Simulated assay, not measured.
Amino acid sequence: MSPAQPVIAMQGIVKRYYIGKPNELEILHGIDLRVEPGEFVAIVGESGSGKSTMMNILGALDRPTEGHYKLNGVDIQMAGDKELANIRNQQIGFVFQTFNLIGRMSALKNVELPMLYAGLPARKRSERAAELLDLVGMGERKKHQPNELSGGQKQRVAIARAMANDPSLILADEPTGALDTATSRIVMDLFHKLHEEQHKTIVLITHNPELAEETQRVITLRDGQIVNVRKGAGVHGRT
């Protein structure tokens, strides 16, 4: 039996930004990373370590300058813009620090949006969105607009939206950065639920070492390089 294909396979990833000839700024310097199906991984690092650049490449929001990145076996460098848009919509669930909900839409309609782009019929979109809001404990707030929700409630809606198209990867960029400690705990428990019960592959990008410790593997970035990879405490790290 052949081994499972990794969700993420990065080899020799370099990212440079050109800031006017002959100047260039290299942010990532030869990143190698492999994430297996069902893993819960944290990427940590101080400001300026390259976390945001790496997140953009992982999310197919940007392309590396050198190296190879395969997401579920698809070579991101070889994909056209339309294919990348489909990959972002259907294979990656994004969760951002600032929630990125659309203010004029209800929670239900926000969760439906990725399914609308994927071409699902209206009834199926509505049914699945309602199921996902129930899953994250927001079923009773499905008609509420973002300005009627707390920060933690907005993030739970955002997590439901990230799950809309049943992605193979959830990419969470500082998802608790705008939340207080108690609300952060609720959001992290929800990620654990998705990992343990839905068997989701999750990459958590965070500056918080305590939250990172709750994952299965902690990857430390410094000055655009992976300087340490260690086992996290996983479910046993929760308090």
Rank of each mutant, 00 (worst) to 15 (best):
N89Q: 07
N89H: 03
N89E: 03
N89Y: 03
Q90N: 15
Q90A: 07
Q91L: 11
Q91W: 01
Q91V: 02
G93Q: 03
G93H: 03
G93E: 03
G93K: 02
G93C: 06
G93N: 04
G93V: 03
F94Y: 11
V95P: 01
V95C: 03
V95I: 15
V95G: 02
F96V: 03
F96A: 04
Q97A: 03
Q97W: 06
Q97M: 04
T98C: 00
T98M: 02
T98G: 02
T98P: 00
T98A: 10
T98L: 01
F99E: 07
F99L: 11
N100T: 04
N100G: 00
L101K: 11
L101N: 10
L101P: 09
L101V: 07
I102D: 03
I102S: 04
G103I: 09
G103E: 12
G103D: 14
R104D: 14
R104M: 10
R104I: 07
R104G: 11
R104V: 10
R104L: 07
R104T: 15
S106I: 11
S106Q: 06
A107F: 04
A107D: 07
A107I: 09
A107V: 05
L108I: 10
L108K: 10
L108Q: 12
K109N: 13
K109F: 07
K109A: 14
N110D: 06
N110W: 02
V111A: 13
V111C: 13
E112F: 06
L113P: 05
L113S: 13
L113M: 15
L113H: 11
P114Q: 06
P114E: 04
P114H: 04
P114I: 04
P114L: 05
M115T: 04
M115V: 05
L116H: 06
Y117V: 15
Y117P: 10
A118R: 11
A118W: 06
A118V: 08
G119L: 07
G119D: 12
G119H: 10
G119R: 12
L120I: 01
L120C: 05
L120F: 14
L120P: 01
A122T: 13
A122G: 11
A122H: 13
R123C: 05
R123V: 13
R123K: 15
K124P: 00
K124C: 00
K124L: 12
K124G: 00
K124Y: 00
K124V: 12
R125N: 09
R125Y: 09
R125M: 12
S126D: 05
S126Y: 02
S126V: 00
E127D: 15
E127M: 10
E127T: 14
E127H: 06
E127Y: 03
R128K: 15
A129I: 04
A129F: 07
A129G: 07
A129D: 05
A130R: 14
A130L: 12
A130G: 14
A130Y: 04
A130D: 14
A130K: 14
A130P: 12
L132P: 12
L132E: 10
L132H: 13
